[in-house]
């Protein structure tokens, strides 16, 4: 017997409802610390410790450091998406969504739009602090806009990957800490905090191909000379990872084990 049932909400409505819910989740708890306190602390710490030293090498650290802090923070925002998604998976909420008539992309999309907003807040906070200590967008408004969009795009793409991971995870803490090591290695072995020549010769190729280096270098370009050839690697990485992680996120929601 086939039974006609009332139509469910359209995907746009479902997306809006879930996004509002995720936004609320983002306003509580560790999220605030993550998006505001953490990056500021890092920024202040690095400035105090390395500013003079880098000046001796001819590097204006107040101009060099903010893109690195932005990358670091957007990665943390993405990682916390994993934590939140895994929490929803553990509470059974994701399973309930799976039994509802919902488009495969609704749950990941509602997740990512909020991650984009969180990334935007974090980037804004860092930029304000950076400008206070002397950071400037010397390539004008276009560069600044590109800087912010690229930073948010990077956060969203990584968040898609992290969300895919979180959907399959049982334990939020475990999932989050599984990401900590790659995060530490990738941020350290990149041009985020020191230029590539500061690394031993055998490590330099690794530093050069790292997506984190690509991202930091592109942000530095956008904040100084403007869009030049340093932006391309970041865009390529964004596209490749975006396709890969976007697909993974949509699939992991509708994956029937």
């Amino acid at each position: 017997m086939t039974v006609a049932s009332p139509p469910a909400a359209g995907p746009a409505r479902q997306f809006a409802v879930l996004a509002a819910r995720n936004l609320r989740q983002a306003r509580v708890g560790r999220s605030i610390g993550l998006t505001v306190v953490f990056p500021l602390t890092f920024f202040a710490g690095f400035m105090v410790v390395f500013h003079r030293l880098m000046a001796d090498y001819g590097i204006a650290y107040e101009q060099f450091l903010p893109p690195a802090i932005v990358v670091q923070t957007t990665v943390l925002v993405a990682m916390s998406a994993c934590y939140m998604v895994a929490g929803d998976a553990r509470s059974g909420l994701i399973s309930r969504y799976r039994t509802l008539p919902m488009g495969a992309a609704v749950v990941p999309a509602a997740r990512l739009v909020v991650d984009a907003a969180r990334a935007a807040v974090a980037v804004a906070v860092i930029l304000v602090a950076a400008v206070v200590v002397g950071f400037r967008f010397t390539a004008g408004a276009a560069g600044a806009v590109g800087f912010v969009l690229l930073a948010i795009g990077f956060a969203v793409v990584l968040a898609a990957g992290c969300a895919a991971l979180g959907l399959g995870a049982r334990d939020p803490e475990q999932a989050y800490s599984a990401l900590t090591l790659p995060y530490l290695v990738l941020t350290t072995v990149s041009t985020a905090f020191v230029p590539v020549d500061a690394f031993p010769g055998w490590l330099q190729p690794v530093v050069r191909v790292s997506p984190f280096s690509a991202q930091v270098d592109a942000l530095r370009a956008l904040s100084t000379e403007g869009a030049d050839q340093r932006v391309w690697p970041a865009l390529v990485w964004l596209l490749v990872l975006g396709l890969l992680f976007g697909f993974a996120a949509a699939r992991s929601f509708r994956r029937t084990r």
């Binding site: 039974v3 469910a8 509470s91 059974g92 909420l93 399973s95 309930r96 039994t99 008539p101 919902m102």
Partner: peptide
Amino acid sequence: RRSIAVTGQFAAL
């Protein structure tokens, strides 16, 4: 999914 309601063994809220 449009035809069913489900209460799982463990609460899903």
